[in-house]
Amino acid sequence: MRHTPSGGAGSGTAAADNRLMSIGTVLNVLREEFPDVTISKIRFLEAEGLIEPQRTPSGYRKFTAHDIERLSRVLRMQRDHYLPLKVIREYLDALERGEEVRLPSLGRQQRDAADTDVLGGLLGDPVTPTVARIGHDELLAAVEISEEQLKDWESYGLLVPLADGTYDAEAVTVATLVAELGRHGIEPRHLRVMKAAADREAGLVDQIVAPLRRHRNPQTRAHAEARTKELAGLAVKLHAALVRSALGVRHP
């Protein structure tokens, strides 16, 4: 990927400096315009192919002024135009190929609706799956993540493949939320406490309905499934309410 100067507000400092810079220096430069940017965010954009910093023999990232200009443009397009990374990458790559392309526009209303859906899944009612299972490649494509990211999330138990290599329907929701949290600097290792809490909650629900599931009467077993869904929904709502209460956030 060939980086070229992109211009725009906030890039003058970077353009005037031709030295190779560490990720910490880059962070300080970017925070003048993007105070919420984090090192995790920069690493995530690199993993998504938006930038390609140089590497020292010991593996440290080194950024050029052009890298910072490109980062600034990516962050600006996310902030001002609410564009997904795939669209931004395709747009910038087309510009670097010398093509005349128009800036795509997702629109604030669409982006706000998407954000509401994500937050609703995290702090509101559980999302109802539309499919029973999803394949490995389908999951990668649906969430737009890399094989390396998926393996990393699996290593922390956030996603667990089934025996046949597929994933259950909730995998897309989980992966989407993990990716979204990652954009805010929350890494998979930080989510182990959430995973542990979810496992404990699931264990409690299972303990309550287990006697019903073992019953010979089919109607009783069917009642067990209904009770499981009901208790799961209540547990999710309670967890969301506790998180909102701890953070002092009002329910929308």
Rank of each mutant, 00 (worst) to 15 (best):
D112T: 06
G107F: 08
Q109H: 07
R108N: 04
R102N: 05
Q110H: 13
Q109K: 11
R108D: 03
D117G: 05
G120Q: 10
G120M: 10
V118A: 15
D112G: 02
R102W: 03
R102P: 00
E99R: 15
A114F: 11
G98L: 06
T130R: 14
P129H: 07
V101M: 08
Q109R: 11
A113H: 03
P104N: 00
A113D: 01
S105K: 07
V118E: 13
G107C: 08
L123Q: 04
L119K: 04
E100S: 15
L92G: 01
L119D: 05
V118S: 11
D117E: 15
E96C: 11
G121K: 08
G124R: 05
D125I: 09
E99N: 14
R97I: 04
L103Q: 14
D115I: 02
D125P: 02
L95D: 00
T116D: 03
L92W: 02
D112E: 10
D93P: 01
R111H: 09
R102H: 06
A114R: 14
E99I: 12
R97T: 06
G121R: 11
L119F: 09
G124L: 10
R111A: 11
R108T: 04
R111I: 01
G120I: 11
T116I: 04
L119A: 10
V127I: 12
L106T: 05
S105C: 03
L103N: 12
Q110W: 08
P126W: 13
V118K: 15
R97M: 09
L95A: 01
G120V: 11
E99G: 12
G107K: 07
L123A: 08
L92E: 05
T116R: 03
P104M: 00
V101Y: 07
A114N: 11
P129D: 09
E99C: 12
P126M: 15
V127P: 01
L119P: 01
V101C: 05
Q110P: 01
L92Q: 03
V118W: 12
V127L: 12
L103T: 15
A114S: 14
P126C: 14
G120E: 15
T128A: 12
L123V: 05
G107M: 08
L119G: 03
A94F: 11
L92M: 04
D125Q: 13
G107R: 07
P126H: 14
D115M: 03
P104D: 00
A114V: 12
L103C: 14
T130L: 14
G124H: 09
P104S: 00
P126A: 13
D117T: 10
E96I: 10
L106V: 04
D117M: 07
R111E: 02
R111L: 02
R108S: 06
A94K: 15
V118R: 15
D125L: 13
